[in-house]
Design a protein around this nucleic acid. Structure first.
Lengths: 237, 237
DNA sequence: CATTTTATGTCGCTT
DNA sequence: AAGCGACGTAAAATG
């Protein structure tokens, strides 16, 4: 990884065209070939960047580039040309350089995540009581011609229930579950009428309204409480 | 802006829970308060981060933290605790530090963009000939009950045409235009039959197929050529 | 302030 | 390679 802090002017042409006037910025060149140009804000997002695979060429400024600089602009010390396979191009004119360090980081062991939709689905599959007394899980990822239903359950009366699990419940998810229910109820393979439950950690009011309007029950899932019901020794960390 | 390269172990709890084992990484602390932890890959995306507003507290390792370290783990030199208003928390244990520099960057003049959807729409509105000889623009952002149609035009015969403009033409855009056309043709306010044109810099094959199947014409827009037809002195740069 | 749309979205998985 | 969905999506425009 190479870190450069320098006065720079950046021009990007690719999916769009973008221009950065002269200013002091951080430029990161990673081992994967990526180049990103950061200001001191915008959180982790760079002002401009090039994704790998791409090649970085460092060259002396051409005579006309040096001459074209106005009195207000800094002297150009180096020009970086970054080219991607897709034809995108990033040009960085470098002026005064106040930092230029290269450090070896090695391969990263990577990020361990916990608490995404898959885990929510696992937890619900292991704790169908979260839906109600006497509920059982028939199958996870129950396949239909238009995709898998997250959970197929039966309630206390033995009626089949299709459950759509989301971390954040929005209208899209209700539409998705509606399509599944339409299909499953058309086939009559699962009895007279398959019910629907929309389960999420947080359900947007619009989604709740639409679900209710379509006879779909909503369940707001408390992830931590559910995890407490689960076997704590099975957690990742 | 502060740049630190160090052995570190990171734990995040917030919308999800995530853990990074010990490894050498880059840590960026920006003037906006954000903290991000980068490996030498994943392009510009950090492994873990905290968005502003948040507070960074640097402290000595507690006795038990120092004691809990196994023989294989590095000696903990410092602990960073990053807290956001929303209750998110990022803890960074720092081991050997090989770089720790702070540089003032100042305020960035910011990014100038050109070539986004809005510009495409402007250019097409100013050059309806791009659609065909004798075309005219009736209105931009023509309102319908389900949203605005990008451009309402009339072709050489005077027939109304709804134009959907996208930078990249995908199925979603065709669906959107279809909904507009259904609505407009139901009302008969704009004559017998409103035609549709799907205009984009690049149109995905599936989108083209779907559009054609629905009787919607496709127009691949050459942004540079269109800009050439436009007044060059009005360009941003 | 809440909602919708855009994004050089990115990333990972499936066909 | 292209399609599809999730993301700690974020950020901007809009009502």
């Amino acid at each position: 990884m190479r870190l450069v802090i320098a006065q720079c002017q950046v021009d990007y042409t690719g999916r769009l065209t973008a221009h950065l006037p002269w200013a002091r910025r951080l430029i990161i060149v990673k081992a994967d070939g990526s180049v990103s140009v950061h200001a001191d804000d915008r959180a982790y997002k760079p002002l401009n960047w090039m994704s790998p695979p791409c090649t970085l060429t460092e060259r002396e400024p051409a005579a006309d580039e040096a001459a074209a600089v106005s009195a207000l602009d800094p002297q150009i010390t180096t020009v970086w040309e970054v080219d991607s396979a897709g034809g995108d191009h990033l040009q960085i004119l470098l002026g005064d350089i106040s930092l230029d360090v290269t450090e070896e980081l090695g391969v990263d062991p990577g990020l361990q995540k916990d608490g995404v939709e898959a885990h929510l689905q696992e937890l619900l599959a292991e704790n169908p009581d979260a839906f109600g007394e006497g509920w059982s899980v028939v199958q996870r990822e129950y396949m239909t011609p238009i995709g898998p239903v997250d959970l197929l359950c039966r309630d206390a009366e033995g009626t089949y229930v299709a459950v759509e699990v989301k971390r954040r419940g929005e209208i899209d998810g209700v539409e998705q579950l509606t399509r599944y229910l339409d299909l499953m109820n058309r086939d009559h393979l699962l009895g007279d009428h398959v019910l629907g439950v929309f389960a999420a950690q947080q359900i947007k009011p619009q989604a709740r309204t639409l679900a209710t309007d379509r006879g779909i029950s909503c369940l707001t899932v408390d992830y931590d409480a559910l995890r407490g019901m689960d076997h704590p020794e099975e957690r990742l960390f």
